[in-house]
């Protein structure tokens, strides 16, 4: 059994049960970023760690089919563009770049604070995708190296 085929059946079963809970926790941290500690940066890393968990447990090949790496790459570069788009819309609606132009809502509610949750989600996607892609490419590089020897 090669090292990049994944781990044992026990690890795979536990991962299959727990990975969605980890992703749910990451989404919770991202969506509640304007109310509680956390936000896009922390939640993004939690989601990247969930994907990394799948990569370590199931191996390189399965993860590549499950996650659709080209889609992740498009999300990674597209989120930067989306951030700028949200900022540019601020010029038209409120008169300045990255202005908070959506209705503020009332304090302590989930749907409040205007553009802040939106930007939190964009940053979360950005951080999660970019950090996972680094580990993914590193693993692919290692496999190529092993094949050459």
């Amino acid at each position: 059994m090669k090292s990049h085929d994944g781990m044992t059946l026990i690890v795979k079963t536990v991962t299959r049960l727990s990975v969605w809970l980890i992703i749910l926790y990451g989404l919770y941290i991202i969506l509640h970023g304007h109310l509680t500690p956390g936000g896009g940066f922390g939640g993004g890393v939690v989601i990247a760690l969930a994907f990394l968990n799948v990569l370590l447990a199931f191996g390189h090949k399965f993860t590549g089919e499950w996650l659709k790496i080209p889609l992740l790459e498009k999300l990674e570069s597209g989120s930067t563009l989306l951030f700028m788009l949200v900022g540019l819309l601020g010029i038209f609606y409120a008169g300045s770049f990255l202005a908070n132009y959506i209705i503020k809502g009332s304090l302590y509610h989930l749907f409040s604070a205007g553009t802040i949750p939106l930007l939190n989600i964009i940053i979360g996607v950005k951080v999660a995708m970019s950090l996972f892609l680094v580990v993914w490419v590193m693993a692919a590089f290692k496999i190529e190296e092993e094949e050459e020897q």
Binding site: H34, G39, S112, A113, L119, N120
Partner: peptide, 23 residues
Amino acid sequence: TGAANLVSSIILDYRAYDTLGEV
């Protein structure tokens, strides 16, 4: 800003341009 987390209100509202540079 309507955000209870003041750190997040600074990152993504008052100094969002800074965050764009960081991204």
